[in-house]
Design a protein around this nucleic acid. Structure first.
Lengths: 120, 120
DNA sequence: TATTCATATGAACAATTGCTCATATGAATG
DNA sequence: CATTCATATGAGCAATTGTTCATATGAATA
């Protein structure tokens, strides 16, 4: 195999077909990468992260989340919609009240790994 | 009624004081939550995710990343700066060339968990 | 049915973001 | 030196995003 590191230049010598030929097929499909970015965008807002941390404890209704976080019902409801679209939370109606809960354990794992990185 | 945040609230039937007293102390510090959101924002862009996937294979220089991804050197360089600030990649200079590599294994874990979630 | 309460949603706005273009920096070479 | 090459960076712009405000929906109850 050609060595990847002993090259001097970036036109013909650095841009060599074998690296590109090797790396390119390993890339997931464009659509997957796009979906993955969309998922992480959901985690990329501190309001939504705070909502998820509230739901770590238990199922909670919209107005209680709003109160705990000191935000309006509308703002929380908008964010819950995004979290639900991303399948990070699920909801259950009981009369007038709607309770939200974490959808699965990937949420905990992903946030946990993120915290580990932050705390290094 | 006491209204610390200037925020509307639902009444006592929905607002469970015990729940709020229980959930609130479990929330990480505001600054941590903010940093965590900033970290996930970095993953929330498909160009940056594609760069990280390229670096899964090996250390690669800027112009090769640009060529593999079919983007300009400038665009890639701007994104690499963000990835480096977030300590997701590290760089090494060799003459005129700068090689980038993954900083640690949290990147793989986080992207892997994200992929698992997508593929469910 | 009319009212009230919890939640959802559309429009609008400021703030942020990712790219392009032009240019700057830093290192090797003539 | 001056030039060339790889990379970095600042300004500017279009696109996206998170919140607020007003209003709509849906369910319980008088």
């Amino acid at each position: 195999m050609l060595d990847l590191y002993g090259v001097e230049r970036c036109d013909e010598f650095c841009t060599h077909a074998d690296l590109i030929g090797k790396v390119k097929p390993e890339l997931p499909e464009e659509e997957k990468l796009y979906d993955l970015a969309e998922l992480f965008k959901i985690f990329g807002d501190s309001t939504r992260i705070r909502i998820l941390y509230v739901l770590f404890e238990s199922e909670v209704c919209v107005c209680d989340i709003a109160e705990v976080l000191g935000m309006t019902q509308s703002a929380i409801s908008h964010q819950l919609r995004l979290l639900k679209q991303a399948k990070l939370v699920r909801s259950r109606r009981e009369g007038k009240t709607v309770y939200y809960a974490l959808a699965d354990d990937h949420v905990r794992t992903i946030l946990g790994q993120g915290m580990d990185h932050i705390n290094e």
